[in-house]
Design a protein around this nucleic acid. Structure first.
Lengths: 233, 233
DNA sequence: CGGAATCCTCTTCGATACTG
DNA sequence: CAGTATCGAAGAGGATTCCG
């Protein structure tokens, strides 16, 4: 797998970052500098040799930079350069396109970071104008939080830094069913599967800003794979 | 190479269209329906099995549709679906990111379609407002044309459909050097390497709209690869 | 001729083991 | 912690052949 050999900007981009795993490495680094081992853990299946290769390549291309952390934490981290940050932005539309496929097969690796990124990229700024809320989630015991400040959404994989306005406790299955619009959180059946605490106004804002935008969206379900036989397709 | 197994929209998109060649197939189909053999010729190196595989996959995912052409031209063509067109739009930012690498290694496969696409995606609409021009190019004997109509740019790989306002005749080497801003078309040295015909106002508009925006742009040159040895990197 | 399937070689990937 | 070494499995690329 070398070069496409075409004088076309898309082919050129793919020559650099079209290899397997490479865009996901950039995605992970978009959240901030990371160590080799952090990346390795964040990309199950990648294989250590491949990660080293990809990082070396990205460094040569000026997408990623190695940096040695100063004294106490003496360790090397990888960090996006300016070109790398621009690349991560260029991948956002592709991710948005991929949203339609999110619904299916929700039994995969799921990290709170990705949920935060999803919200970050799809929050409706106008609706969030003037809102200053802090939401905490504990999903299958894993805590994370997001803060909304006048249209800007930030977050982290840790308990809320102060008392949150809303706290949601549930499991991933329920979290996803509600998030994908397949379970109405007001349904009595939902009540047994989690809890939403907070004052009514804040809870209403939470549903309005982070849950409602996903209801009614169309999710792609792959066509039933017909065992090859007469008449299929 | 199966699935990344991550509940992340980018990973989901890459699971579907992240394989080698797939984005380039979508790029080629973005210009309009094409037959199998057209695609094959447009993607030197792909290998016929791989193209068949990719097309089958894209069809299953609802990105591409097969269609049988009616009577006289009885032939099957592949065509983007709505999702496919959305995907091709989502790839535009990635192509724009790849622009910075276009400068290097300009000895590759170069198709007029890509030049037209480049101009299409990067024309400055405001400057082209009110302009109605037709430009014809004959580069190394290969004719193509672009029409600018009030900010919209269209084109085709054929001689201009009527007498053009500007006709450029040159070779690819010169075309690229001027296009990448490495050769000033007003330089006397350039005059011997091609011809620009047309009335002065139209020629001025041509340079303003299609040449000037590329001057001064920064092109990435890869770091000199040091033969491995002590002290390299 | 268009639209593939087969066969074969070569490269890349993924997993495990190992080292500074 | 940050990688390199090794090796079997999977995928890519090329040529040829097959079918309508």
């Amino acid at each position: 797998m070398k070069t496409y050999g075409q004088f076309c900007p898309l082919a050129r981009a793919l020559d650099r970052v079209g290899d397997r795993w490479t865009p996901l490495i950039v995605r992970d680094l978009a959240a901030g500098p990371k160590r080799y081992t952090d990346l390795l853990r964040g990309l199950p299946g990648i294989g250590t040799t491949l990660l080293a290769d990809r990082l070396r390549r990205l460094e040569e291309e000026g997408v990623v930079e190695r940096r040695e952390l100063p004294a106490p934490a003496a360790s090397t981290v990888y960090e996006l350069t300016q070109a790398g940050r621009e690349l991560s932005s260029a991948l956002v539309p592709l991710a948005s396109w991929g949203l339609r496929y999110l619904g299916v097969n929700a039994t995969e690796e799921l990290r709170p970071e990705w949920i935060i990124m999803l919200w970050q990229q799809h929050i409706e700024r106008e609706n969030a104008r003037g809102v200053h809320d802090l939401y905490e989630f504990v999903v299958d015991g894993q805590p994370f939080h997001v803060a909304i400040d006048d249209g800007e959404l930030t977050g982290g994989v840790s308990p809320a830094p102060r008392a949150p306005d809303v706290r949601v406790t549930t499991d991933w299955q329920t979290f996803l069913e509600v998030g994908l619009g397949r379970l109405d959180p007001l349904d009595p059946a939902a009540a047994t599967r989690g809890a939403v605490e907070g004052d009514d106004a804040a809870v209403a804002r939470f549903f309005e800003l982070l849950v409602a935008p996903w209801r009614g969206r169309e999710w792609f379900d792959p066509p039933a794979r017909v065992a090859d036989g007469p008449g299929s397709r």
